[in-house]
């Protein structure tokens, strides 16, 4: 066993400990805090698996946005009683069976296989992006990404639809009260500019190195949320036309380039000559829409009358 293997095994043991604590712990808040830790450890696991793009997405969404979303929800829904999972022998047996079956599949599949790597390598020169993951996301399997952007929008419509009649069309969340010269207020003014630069950098670098619209968009969303929580800016009312245009711009531009693909032969086919600028343009607009959608998903339904 090498030192690298020892590192992987200890990391996986930590991940499993965190997961067991998330499920088995009594305290709801403790479970959520452990889930944030779990996301962090998983981020390291993705780096070990050589998937830095996934690590960026997991770190930004799993450890960042989901953590803040669940922390807020836990504070609202915690009755202080604590919950232990009920003991269900049948379910335990079934889960052991699932684990065993999946484990057997992993062991039997653990043989060298090239997968789709040669195919991606062969087509990378005409894809318009040097980062193979970005090439798959925006070119080879652009369909998936378009549908994903649509799913985000639909989820946001679902969240908004939960608002009571009197606050429909108003601003999301509550008015934030912040002491201007306090730590929170200072954070809210100091961090967003730095974070915004990091987010834009991740989108820009995404065509040639790990990064991309989703990762960069998530960072911009986190930064916006930070400014909102610190009371520096207010979320726009959900009835605002400008907000709705911003939310739709990304999927719309992506769809438009897809239709333009008919010029190159088929829906979503990019002409290699234009592929690079097209992908970059789609990524930039998509990142802004994703940032707005994700941030509004975290803030939740409108709570204030218009």
């Amino acid at each position: 066993m090498t030192l690298g293997d020892a590192f992987d095994i200890l990391l996986c043991l930590l991940i499993l400990t965190a997961a067991a604590g998330v499920i088995g712990g009594r305290d709801l808040f403790g479970s959520v805090a452990l889930f944030i830790v779990y996301g962090l450890l998983l981020t390291i696991a993705w780096v070990r698996l050589g998937a830095v793009d996934v690590a960026l997405a997991e770190g930004a969404i799993g450890a960042g946005l989901t953590g803040v979303l669940l922390l807020g929800a836990a504070a609202k829904m915690d009755d202080g009683a604590g919950q232990r999972p009920s003991f269900r022998p049948g379910a335990l047996l079934l889960c052991a069976g699932v684990a065993g079956g999946l484990g057997w599949a992993v062991v039997s599949l653990a043989q060298p296989a090239a997968g789709l790597i040669p195919l991606v390598r062969e087509n990378l020169p005409v894809a318009g992006a040097d980062n193979p993951v970005t090439a798959v996301l925006l070119n080879f399997r652009g369909w998936d990404t378009l549908m994903e952007a649509a799913v985000l929008l639909i989820a946001l419509v679902g969240v908004w639809a939960l608002s009571p009649e009197d606050s429909w069309g108003g601003r999301s969340g509550l008015t934030q009260r912040v002491r201007v010269d306090g730590v929170l207020g200072t954070f809210g003014r100091f961090l967003p500019p730095i974070g915004f630069v990091v987010g834009v950098y991740l989108v820009w670098v995404g065509t040639s190195a790990p990064g991309g619209a989703f990762q960069g968009g998530t960072v911009v969303a986190a930064v916006w949320l930070l400014a909102i929580m610190a009371g520096v800016v207010e979320p726009p009312p959900v009835a605002s036309i400008r907000l709705r245009l911003l939310l739709m711009a990304g999927p719309a531009v992506f769809l438009a380039t897809g239709i333009w693909g008919f010029a190159a032969g088929a829906f979503m086919a990019f002409d290699p000559a234009y592929a690079k600028p097209l992908i970059l343009a789609v990524e930039l607009v998509l990142a802004l829409s994703i940032a707005a959608t994700l941030a509004l998903l975290v803030i939740g339904r409108p709570r204030r009358p218009q």
Binding site: L92, C95, L102
Partner: peptide
Amino acid sequence: FGLTGAALIALGFY
């Protein structure tokens, strides 16, 4: 990592 993933799925399901 594959076996860890399998264990996580079962744990989450339970």
